[in-house]
Amino acid sequence: MTQASKRALITGIQGFTGRYMAAELEAHGYEVVGTGSQASTEPRYVQADLTDAVSLRTVLADLQPDVVVHLAALAFVGHGVADAFYQVNLIGTRNLLEAIAACGKTPDCVLLASSANVYGNASDGMLGEDTPPAPANDYAVSKLGMEYMARLWQDRLPIVMTRPFNYSGVGQGENFLLSKIVSHFRRRAPVIELGNLDVWRDFSDVRAVVAAYRGLLEAAPVGQTVNVSSGVAHSLRDVIALCEQITGHRIEVTVNPAFVRANEVKTLTGDNSRLRRLVPGWATPALQDTLAWMLDAR
């Protein structure tokens, strides 16, 4: 079957990553259908709430996708209600897997987006897929729980698990760090409040992340967990300096103690060698290029 005749289902298609994922798959010939919890008049969109198991089964029986990319999740770590993480990320994913298994067609690949947050604060330095998880908040626990739950379906569904590290791009909400910094530079704000400037993090470009997901759908390394990361760490001081260099605008950085986490890990970098083996030629742009794209966005 050619890609052109393959139907891809993207859950959370109206989210930041979902829109880029749809564009990536359409550019490579897939017929894309998306779901989300909100009503919408967009074409090829079906309203389907992950927490509603019955309607999800109806939707999947109708769509019968060839591949599934499961992006829908409650993602903002600062979200106030812990229960919601488990309802959506854990129970919602279980409902989805049940609906896929019952739909009458086994897809070629079901890609589940977990999170590098599962590694938590216990490990410094370069994190590989075999690094023991140590989640440090409800969001991360809900994602790790989702991973374990999904393993129970491995004999019935061709599941691939991804653990994306931080990534950014045009259109991401300002409650994410790089987007917050970029928005301050775009409006030439004189001051920005941040937390610890000396933490080093691994940042990728959303366009590279969705290219990795597409590559994994096609390679279908069933049963594997794959980091999606740049393999390079930058400090927040680096990010500020790059933005100043690109825009010529100087900004005063004040450290807000409320933004400093007590048990913050100094350096988090993802080992992406498994991804590069599975998807030959995959790469993410240099952080400077991603920032320049975001700063220049119309």
Rank of each mutant, 00 (worst) to 15 (best):
K6G: 02
A8Y: 02
I10Q: 01
M21K: 06
E24V: 07
L25N: 04
A27R: 15
G29V: 05
S37V: 15
Q47G: 03
Q47V: 10
A48Q: 02
L50K: 02
T51S: 10
L60P: 01
D62L: 11
H70S: 09
H70I: 05
L74K: 15
L74A: 10
A75I: 15
V81C: 08
V88T: 15
N89V: 12
G104V: 02
K105M: 02
T106H: 01
V110K: 05
L112R: 06
V118T: 15
G120I: 09
N121I: 13
S123P: 00
D124L: 11
G125A: 11
M126K: 13
E129D: 11
D130G: 05
Y139C: 08
S142H: 08
S142W: 10
S142Y: 08
K143N: 04
M146N: 03
L152A: 12
L152Q: 10
W153D: 01
W153Q: 01
D155S: 12
V170K: 07
F176I: 06
L178G: 00
K180C: 07
P190V: 11
V191T: 14
E193K: 14
E193C: 04
G195E: 06
V199M: 11
V199Q: 13
R214E: 05
A241V: 07
T247E: 06
H249T: 07
V255L: 08
E264Y: 10
S273G: 06
S273I: 09
V279W: 10
A286N: 03
Q288G: 00
T290Y: 04
T290P: 00
A292G: 00
A292Q: 11
D296Q: 12
R298W: 00
